[in-house]
Write a protein that binds this DNA or RNA. Structure first.
Lengths: 246, 246
DNA sequence: AATCCCGTTTGATCCAGGTCAAAGTTCGCA
DNA sequence: TGCGAACTTTGACCTGGATCAAACGGGATT
């Protein structure tokens, strides 16, 4: 996805209105948003926000991938969220950021100054409604991940992560249920480890094991082919297909 | 806390309006709520909702303690939330329950039929707003717990749990910052294990260890005294006091 | 007071994943 | 084309917590 023009506002090139916040996309909102919205780019590896910083904007990811992480004083870190295109960032009604947000690839964000956005939200009920819905989705995802972190084995954790990435990848380019797919792994082994509560060595070993067992194939380090998604779901310990099949 | 009268509606005995949803507690809402609100009791150990069930109400806990859990087919279970008095249950806009909700002590819930509640929400923006705020709080709690599950040692996990229970206990009966406190542990060792992603044996061992080291004292199995909360926070691996001190 | 039931503690042993270390791969850059 | 840095893989060993097993309350029932 290319960075949209800064000056042009329309549903087609603005994920936050079209996919993330605006459920019905009404014309008067379009007017209201003009002037409080702006785009911002970050390079791979660059921090977007530090935990505890005052955050004067909310926004959504247009392109690229960012991560939400928490860190302990001794350096142990846990990723608590993965931000893919169309994901929302920010906490309306809160001043401080609760987590570190880091761009893992080059990232373009579509931002709104926080105060005007909150005013807009107060005046347009269905935006507030959509935001509640999104927050509930994130809560579900966080709780699903608690099961992964608390109870799954290393191999199941890896399979669960691949499942999630595959699912999100598929939903961005929907083409019905397929049993085989290929996608790019947007994370380093270390980032995967931080997401899964493992070490990078264990991640590497389990990736090798899944490859040896034919669950996945690797082209280079980052491109993953899954010959049989059903098999991957089994490995993840989910009985369901995780909403992947349609 | 005693079960409130079923027929009497007022701010004083209705946590959902007073503490959970209604930020400003206006008179016209009070009228509107009459007739869609009811109380319901559950005995200790009784399921309140099964994951996947259609849920035709939302509500909040009046008294007692309930847990939110997720289970894998092979029986591994992970608690994803702890419901204490004033906590909200239910997902406006969603039909199915996503988790098992189980009463761990006798529980009284204050319920609202879902459809009328949603209508009410649509017409009273600040209820929607309050609900968003609550959901963001839950999301923060879930993400904080991801760090506990993914990166903390067994001893730190136990200390973190005690910290959380102590904090919530203190907030229900606020009396300023104290360095010493005593509270009831409302969970079995097994429930603690399910919350922490451990086995009950490990929980028991670590409780014994914390006791031996003088971090906590036990009166019976369930009553816990903490001579020095600061010490407990240290054990939990938090640099902050977790918002406990004022 | 004896019995049962349920939750808890404690002990002995095992193993999945962590830790430490070294070598391999990829890619940008001079 | 060769060098260096960052990322990844693999190996050897260790350990925290799981597993298996037994004993220990303590409250309810008879």
């Amino acid at each position: 996805m290319n960075a949209p023009s800064i000056t042009h506002i329309s549903c087609a090139d603005c994920p936050i209105r079209h996919r993330a916040v605006c459920a019905r996309c009404e014309a008067d909102e379009l007017e209201a948003l003009d002037g409080i919205k702006y785009y911002r780019s970050y390079e791979a590896g660059q921090p977007i926000i530090w935990s505890g910083d005052v955050m004067n904007f909310v926004g959504s990811v247009v392109s690229g991938i960012a991560t939400l992480t928490q860190t302990m004083e001794d350096g142990r870190t846990q990723m608590v969220g993965l931000l893919l295109p169309s994901d929302f960032v920010g906490r309306p009604g809160r001043d401080g950021a609760a987590y570190n947000v880091v761009a893992t690839t080059d990232v373009v964000m579509c931002c709104f100054r926080k105060k005007p956005f909150e005013d807009l939200m107060a005046n347009t009920p269905h935006i507030a409604h959509r935001l509640l819905e999104m927050t509930l989705d994130e809560l579900d995802a966080a709780r699903e991940w608690m099961l992964v972190l608390g109870r799954k084995t290393a191999r199941e954790k890896i399979a669960s992560l691949l499942t999630i990435i595959a699912r999100r990848d598929a939903s961005l380019t929907p083409r019905g249920a397929v049993n085989e797919m290929t996608f790019d792994l947007p994370l380093t082994r270390e980032a995967m480890a931080d997401y899964l509560g493992l070490t990078l060595e264990t991640v590497s070993r389990q990736m090798s094991a899944l490859k040896k067992d034919g669950v996945i194939a690797l082209e280079g380090k980052r491109r993953v082919s899954v010959p049989d998604m059903g098999r991957l779901f089994e490995e993840a310990g989910d009985d369901s297909d995780g909403g992947y099949m349609s």
